[in-house]
């Protein structure tokens, strides 16, 4: 579904991604783990068009090259990015945030369905629908950010550190919903620092270190790999 070949991204003098290649197949949960500054967020930002790569290609569904497209065009293709730190529109209500997620959708009935689905996945959002999203807790904001991205009916959902700064119980809820979303047919590329949680739900994983992929295996194998355990799981 998504194929990345030899991707390079630079910020001025910093060479943030140095020849990253990876693939995500339809229906998978693929996770990308790595420490702070390894380039995980940069990779997601390159996929969703927020950063123009300096070299390499990003192929969508094996054919379309998308690395030079503007972000709003990439959304139209069916890739949605839930950015790091949730980035909900704090000045708007929960409902307005969801409506923005459906910005490119025209069919009113479909949008209503999407809202219903969001409220089923995260019932708390229904209670808070008229509240300004800036007043939500961190966990609720993360739920809103995911629900908002789903409003666009993405085929591939890019999640950047959904567990960041959340209480363990909330993290569990969110990960459960991520699996549910995947079971309902959305492919997921998950970036996480919480390697343990991420590898447990992912079919496959990649380990990113200073801009390069150093390991690639099934989630289970990575979870049991001595290198990963030593470097990312705190053993």
């Amino acid at each position: 579904m998504l194929t990345i070949r030899n991707l390079h991204v630079r910020y001025g003098a910093v060479h943030a991604l140095q020849g990253v290649s990876l693939t995500v197949a339809a229906g998978e949960i693929v996770t990308l783990i790595g420490s702070n500054g390894a380039g995980k967020s940069t990779l997601l930002r390159a996929i969703s068009g927020l950063h123009r790569p300096s070299a390499g290609e990003i192929l969508w569904k094996g054919a379309a090259q998308i690395e030079t497209l503007a972000p709003h065009r990439i959304v139209a293709l069916g890739l949605c990015h839930v950015p790091e730190g949730r980035q909900v529109f704090a000045n708007l209500t929960v409902r307005e945030n969801l409506d923005l997620g459906a910005y490119q959708r025209k069919d009113k009935a479909e949008i209503r369905e999407g809202i219903e689905r969001a409220y089923t996945l995260f019932p708390i959002l229904k209670e808070r629908q008229q509240q300004l999203s800036g007043t939500l807790s961190g966990g609720e904001q993360q739920m809103l950010a995911i629900a908002r991205a789903l409003m666009a009916r993405p085929e591939l959902l890019l999640l950047d550190e959904p567990s960041l700064g959340l209480a363990p119980l909330v993290v569990q809820t969110i990960f459960k919903v991520i699996q549910e979303i995947n079971a309902q047919g959305t492919t997921i590329l998950l970036v996480e620092q919480n390697a343990h949680m991420a590898l447990r739900i992912a079919q496959r994983g990649y380990v990113l270190q200073t801009g390069k992929i150093v390991l690639e295996d099934s989630g289970k194998n990575l979870l049991n790999s001595p290198e990963v355990r030593a470097a990312y799981l705190g053993d």
Binding site: P71, V75, L100, R148, A152
Partner: peptide
């Protein structure tokens, strides 16, 4: 940035 991720 976030607006563009909404498809705006």
């Amino acid at each position: 940035e976030t607006s563009s991720l909404m498809g705006i």
